[in-house]
Design a protein around this nucleic acid. Structure first.
Lengths: 338, 338
DNA sequence: TCTGGCACTCTGTGAGCGCGAGTGCCAGCG
DNA sequence: CGCTGGCACTCGCGCTCACAGAGTGCCAGA
């Protein structure tokens, strides 16, 4: 178990390193923090912290930098979440209030997060399966060709083409539309499969093929892997990453392009509360030198999706966590209003 | 006027420089190309080309590199568009054929372009105003709150909230929906304002406020600056840009985040045919060291939007142009089918 | 008009060197 | 037992210097 002072030393190291981006030495530490002890003592503490794996030296006779384990301890025990100031909160609200539709909300959220944290922002669209159905629309484009449009209470709209095995009359279409909506409107998408499974039976035999085609398209749309989408932004902030550029930035950019990877990453994060994944805690190799701070957001008590930021492990955790939490809260409000 | 051989020298310089990314000298040129003359002669030609501003030396006694003007001449006179091979064309088609909706088409197009050209891909969503109306849907969310959904023939779907000054009955709503669609379905969005301007007059006085609210939201949605959207991808390819990293890549990433800037850039490009903007020809400063190759695409003869790539001025122009053209062609086909 | 030759000018690379920051260890002190 | 000051040691960074190599411009001759 580490003594109180050693924890203070670790905290000071993290803070200084995050600030200066340079390995921090014992002398500098005592000068910038009121530890009440001499550099020699700090050196002893550092040696102990290094033995425990919380800090490391890039090379012999350079200062120390925190390891992933060090950051982990810092986040868990040594630092809280820094709340946003009142003006910041107002700015967030003003910025998000101007959105005209869901795409706009997401786009603005991404920009906002990227600006606030000066890191890469990732915002997941509200998950279909976790939202409720506002309306299902069916349009005849051709006698045997329909367009299916799903609208969620969070404002998300998805459309799909449906090719029917046989032409489908306008009255049958209206009938299907009405029956579908009366069954699923206001219900959660996750329940839709169960709610519609016996629907074909309500139709004449010649229409059942078309009804089934519509339903199977509807169900396909709800398959989890396909239905999740996200938007990223602030990639220009990656240029502040470090000096050893191409090697660091390349895999990160590649990971960010792989939305599947990011979605998985967000999915693994805890469902409630804020999650911080530091360095090698991220399963995806390309993100081994980054940290991911994410949190769920939603219109009510329940999260409909997640958002967060990706940045260097050397990041301002309290500030970043504060910004992420605040933004998630306001996005939830906006969604509830719309 | 430059002699035929000097043009050949310029072409050889561009090709070698694009291949090796290093300034090319007279000796290497004669070795790799059958110019039929000695290095000394090439040196004279190079001096002439430099006087004319087609090539430049990074420093005295280094090889030459093409200037923007040199690339311009190369693109205009010395190189054609390299057609895609049959397998490549098949691969493009296969890849795009799997798309389930417009978002998917655009996303796949971006990936494809980025992979083919190994550069940053930019794909604009089909412009609303240049598309035709497939359907306009109105849903009552609350007595005085509607959702307006626009669906284009290219599969694009836009939705907006409408707050009505007074509650709007279900029959009136159905009436408005029917009238709206009979007027605008199949027509071009650009004509919509004209087609609906007298619509409120057909309604009872108490409903006119709501009808006007719907119409004004509809018209706002069509305002050019707001309705254009795009998707980008392949930013990881920026890491292949050059050695002097952060300085080069930063402004490019920033420019790519500014969709407004990119849309303007694409908008300025010629409306038909392929446009290549080289280095300083791009009005936006951040893109002064990049070239933008863009072309319109559309389901019929007319372009509904543009797509292209952003890469270093030192790019393989014939190959890039070939890929961009081929992808645009297939995307047009896909849109026409859907 | 082209060619071979020659002197010149750069840049990039690698070795050598000194400085400074930082460490580890130790003996002494409270 | 923990803290402190002192001291020797290590090592990376930046600097200079020299050198090799590539490439040029120019000139005289074919």
């Amino acid at each position: 178990m580490l003594s109180e002072r050693r924890l203070q030393v670790l905290r000071a190291i993290v803070q200084d390193y995050v600030g200066t981006e340079e390995p921090v030495g014992s002398k500098a530490l005592t000068e910038r923090h009121n530890l009440g002890v001499s550099p020699a003592t700090v050196r002893n503490d550092m040696a102990a912290l290094e033995d425990e794996g919380y800090i490391a030296q890039p090379h012999t006779s350079a200062g120390r930098i925190p390891t992933d384990k060090g950051y982990r301890l810092f986040v868990d025990k040594l630092a809280g979440v820094k709340p946003m100031s009142a003006p910041e909160r107002r700015a967030i609200q003003n910025f998000l209030d101007g959105a005209v539709d869901l795409d706009d909300v997401v786009a603005r959220t991404v920009r906002l997060l990227a600006q606030l944290t000066r890191q890469v922002a990732v915002v997941q669209y509200p998950s279909l399966t976790r939202s409720t159905v506002r309306h299902v629309e069916l349009l005849a484009l051709a006698p045997a060709r329909l367009m299916l449009v799903l609208i969620t209470d969070t404002g998300r709209v998805e459309q799909r083409m449906v090719d029917c095995p046989a032409p489908f009359g306008e009255t049958s279409l209206a009938d299907l539309r009405a029956r579908l909506n009366s069954r699923v409107a206001g219900r959660r998408f996750a329940d839709v499969p169960r709610l519609v499974e016996d629907l074909p039976e309500a139709f004449e035999v010649e229409d059942r093929g078309a009804v089934s085609a519509v339903l199977s398209t509807l169900l396909e749309t709800l398959v989890e892997e396909n239905e999740e989408r996200l938007m990223i932004g602030g990639t220009a902030n990656l240029t502040r990453f470090g000096h050893d550029f191409p090697l660091t930035i390349r895999p990160v950019l590649e990971a960010l392009e792989e939305h599947v990877v990011l979605l998985k990453l967000l999915g693994e994060a805890g469902d409630s509360g804020m999650t911080v994944r530091i360095g090698h805690e991220n399963a995806y190799e390309g993100l081994n030198s980054t940290s991911v701070v994410s949190v769920g957001y939603g219109s009510g008590g329940e999260a409909v999706a997640k958002l967060g930021v990706v940045g260097p492990t050397r990041m301002d955790y309290p500030g970043t966590m504060g910004a992420v939490r605040a933004v998630a809260r306001y996005v939830g409000q906006i969604l509830a209003e719309s």
